[in-house]
Design a protein around this nucleic acid. Structure first.
Lengths: 140, 140
DNA sequence: TTAATTACTTGCAAATCGCAAGTAATAATC
DNA sequence: GATTATTACTTGCGATTTGCAAGTAATTAA
């Protein structure tokens, strides 16, 4: 499963070898900002990912140690997916995508959702808050 | 050419509808950090993009107004590609990818190139410097 | 005037995507 | 306790995208 191949030795291109596709960062965003953590949660999101793609991407993310997968003791059916610290550390990338979007995409896509206002007044505060909050809600 | 379709109204997913693939941000990086600006420049980079993919992506980036294409008055052959302000404003995304890579990818890919040291001591300074510098070198 | 360079296009095989359908295990309901 | 629903998948298949090789057309250099 974990057949990572890197195009070259550039750190930026290498990051994109892992994260640079249509779905990987979307799934991380759904976990971080929308508290999604089960297969069904991801399927129900607005982006409309297909089941086979979701299944493949979750395995990919797990093999890269960006997320973990476990079952709760009282439920043998539902898998809970959680961001690892490595996954959580992609928060600044996601926030910069939101900022770029706010600045450049509204004329192309007028009905874009509003971003958290804090994104423009205290970016680092927002990032810290999101990470702290995520950790808090996922101690177990 | 410009057949942008957005999956949904999330700003982050929408940014990834434009930038979230294997090559788009790599080309922007090559322009911003490696001063590449001709078809040949891009082809010669370590990432090894194929000619047909490069051609398609340059048109895509131009149609989105992230880059411009023009010929110099003294050379009717070579096209010069340049980042627009919209393209330049993706610099923070690229820098955050480099930071994430520095932090998380070295154990997976030990021979990664060193990033500019400033990235960890004065991130905003580096971003400002890169943008100012790029503008200076591309006034014409 | 011949050769080289640049910026492409075309063809094709392989890989990936995305929809639909099916399955297997567990949990909830009657 | 049997039936139904839910969750997390897998499989099949057609469509799209990728990446390599080869070819082309315009311009420039030798």
């Amino acid at each position: 499963m974990n057949d990572v191949t890197f195009r070259c030795d550039c750190p930026i291109s290498s990051a994109l070898d892992l994260l640079g596709d249509k779905w990987t960062l979307v799934i991380i965003k759904q976990m971080l900002l929308e508290n999604r953590r089960t297969f069904k949660d991801f399927l129900e999101a607005d982006e409309g990912i297909a089941t086979n793609i979701l299944s493949t991407r979750l395995k990919w993310l797990e093999s890269l140690d960006l997320i973990t997968k476990e079952k709760l003791p009282d439920n043998k059916k539902v898998n809970i997916y959680r961001l690892t610290e490595k996954g959580l550390s992609s928060t600044p990338i996601i926030i910069e995508l939101a900022i770029w979007s706010d600045k450049n995409l509204r004329q192309l896509h007028p009905i874009l959702q509003e971003s958290n206002a804090m994104i423009h007044t205290d970016k680092q505060g927002l990032i810290d808050h999101l990470i702290t909050n995520y950790r808090k809600q996922n101690l177990e």
